[in-house]
Nucleic acid binder design. Structure first.
Lengths: 245, 245
DNA sequence: GTCAATATATTGTCCTGACAAACTATTGAC
DNA sequence: GTCAATAGTTTGTCAGGACAATATATTGAC
């Protein structure tokens, strides 16, 4: 029995995207089992009334996502699952919400400060330039999980306290018209200082995960710099990556 | 003055790839400055004697790499640098070598052991099944940096000690015919046990970065599982990621 | 001058067609 | 039986053309 796909030519959704989504759904729902060899492109195109390039574009999208593998002379195969979503700019808030953890945010401070050297370097402004600083504590199940400190260039108005308590920062920035394009992160570890320990309900010297991130917009300008501290006892970073041969 | 590209039709290298590489080189060398608007696709195609789909394919590759941004009705723009290479399966050995750190590897042990539950789960075999265990210490400048423990399914022969001291594990696996496709990593932190502290030349309780990784081949089968410990005082993970809107 | 309507430029999507390259399976020679 | 040559299948690359969607610049009305 073959899985049936249906293409709606009256829809404004691009044809390749329709097919791509239906293929992805079929894989996700287990209708296309791992290891399955897909129908070849030409047949698939004929069957759906599409051209081969359109079918290829749909398949290519899933290859890029890591769900399919193509081999010349062989065919296109469903990857053996376990590979879920590829790496994206993980919004801590969204990640937790997706995991059903119902995150809470306590905004500690929103204020304008002269940029320290580290922040100035990351944001590409002169040292001492005014920037917005946002300090938050993220909690799950009533216990602190992370201490988040973000710096934004002074140009725009900083997000409102109420908004920050209701959702994640990246969502707010996107809503405010900032198009995020890429980010650099560095993840390290260090021992908690007494102040950090108290804030996070840990003992001084306890191991903490530290993450520094600079986010860039379409034109490559830095739009955010954050230095975050996570309780190692309660949090790990999960990544998934594709290997480009 | 326009940057000149040259396409060699007698070469076996695909045309789109030739163009893609020359574009990338021009960006890398600063001949195409960040923010520059590229010549539009149709002109570029005509100028190079290529078809528009071929030019698009070349550009698309760099968009996927995060070097270019396209906007309908506007054009294709060079991203404002700072974004270097996207995330890949970072081989610690290669990373260090690229940074000019001249890594050294001390192979502590290569042996077959019954798989503990954690390893068995990751590799998808029954608990107690024999697997190869490789224990290594990685050093730079004569000082220990990380303690690496890898598990491989027992099917293949384990790599030779001499090879492991000369290069990285992934390179060896690739050379042995394993095609790596994707990997899942989790990065956390914890305090060093006395044994770990001694091995890594740290004090007991010092913060260590821990990384667990499962690597998969084309068909989605796990081919390697590793649990690694890094000295937080000497190492951080650097990631770079693109945001899919 | 300000604003809306129009024109223009550029990428996005889609089609048809063709040949090349790589892998698999079969066939045939020995 | 073993190996090499051959044929068939499937994806990879490339061409050329057409129209749509979107952003920007220009024009015109008020």
């Amino acid at each position: 029995m073959d899985v049936k796909f249906s293409i709606d030519r009256t829809s404004p959704v691009p044809l390749y995207f329709q097919l791509s989504q239906q293929l992805e759904a079929a894989i996700e729902h287990g209708e296309l089992l791992p290891g399955t060899l897909l129908v070849n492109e030409i047949d698939l195109a004929g069957r759906l009334g599409l051209s081969r390039p359109t079918v290829r574009q749909a398949i290519q999208a899933l290859v890029d996502k890591g769900l399919l593998v193509r081999r010349r002379g062989v065919g296109t195969q469903v990857v053996h699952s376990q590979v879920r979503r590829p790496l994206e700019l993980s919004s801590l808030y969204d990640d937790l919400a997706a995991a059903g953890q119902r995150p809470a945010t306590r905004v500690l401070d929103i204020t304008a400060v002269p940029a320290p050297a580290e922040v100035a370097g990351a944001l590409g402004v002169a040292e001492g330039t005014e920037v917005h600083r946002i300090e938050r504590l993220r909690l799950t199940h009533g216990a602190p999980l992370a201490y988040l400190r973000n710096y934004l260039p002074a140009g725009r108005r900083p997000p409102a306290r109420a908004d920050l308590e209701a959702t994640g920062l990246y969502r707010l920035m996107r809503a405010a018209g900032t198009t995020l394009h890429s980010a650099r992160q560095s993840i390290g570890a260090r021992a908690a200082t007494p102040g950090e320990a108290e804030l996070l309900d840990e003992s001084p010297g306890a191991p903490l995960l530290s993450m520094h991130r600079t986010a860039f917009d379409d034109s490559g300008r830095p739009v955010e710099y954050g230095t975050h501290l996570y309780r190692a006892s309660r949090y790990t970073f999960e990544l998934q990556l594709l290997i480009r041969s």
